[in-house]
Design a protein around this nucleic acid. Structure first.
Lengths: 84, 84
DNA sequence: TCAATGTTTAGACAAATGTCTAAATAAATT
DNA sequence: AATTTATTTAGACATTTGTCTAAACATTGA
């Protein structure tokens, strides 16, 4: 839960998640959309992976990142506590 | 949205929110449940208020904090994007 | 009015965070 | 084999964050 909220507490990381709604993408393809350096984006992707918000698979020289929607359920569950 | 995720990115603040599920409470009553100093809890309450996750009303010498569930809807809305 | 109680403000400080550049690793191409 | 392309790792650095103590402010009660 800590890693989850930590990962979400950054606008760039949230934008990456929104980008991945359109489907999986390589680290480079993701990085292109932002003004930050590749290492910075790589680090953001690492935090998203630690929170299990994304998974990654190596495809040749590329590393493809995919949204993991499972974790959103967990968050939703936490939120629903407050609605009742 | 930034203030919201920032506010949620701390276990003490999340615990305060869970405490407030049981009903409104004064700053002092909240602080009693934690090992941190009163100023520290006051600061956490301030961040929760900035995120509009709580509201506060002065009642005599006490300041009573109340959960504002409206904001949870906003968060839920953001999450639901990812489920479809 | 003075003292006690409840809360916030101010300022300090260590730890965590987001960014960068340079270098390392890995795969594909020539 | 050497070079290019894709990505990560390492290390540095400024900023932000969470905590504290001391002091200020506000309300109540003696």
């Amino acid at each position: 839960m800590n890693a989850l909220f930590k990962a979400l507490n950054d606008p760039t990381r949230r934008a990456i998640l929104e980008r991945l709604r359109n489907g999986p993408a390589s680290a480079g393809a993701i990085a292109e959309q932002f003004q930050f350096s590749a290492p910075t984006i790589s680090h953001h992707l690492d935090l998203l992976r630690q929170a299990e918000l994304v998974t990654s698979q190596k495809q040749g020289q590329f590393v493809v990142y995919t949204l993991n929607m499972t974790v959103f359920d967990e968050l939703m569950g936490w939120l629903i506590q407050f609605k009742s």
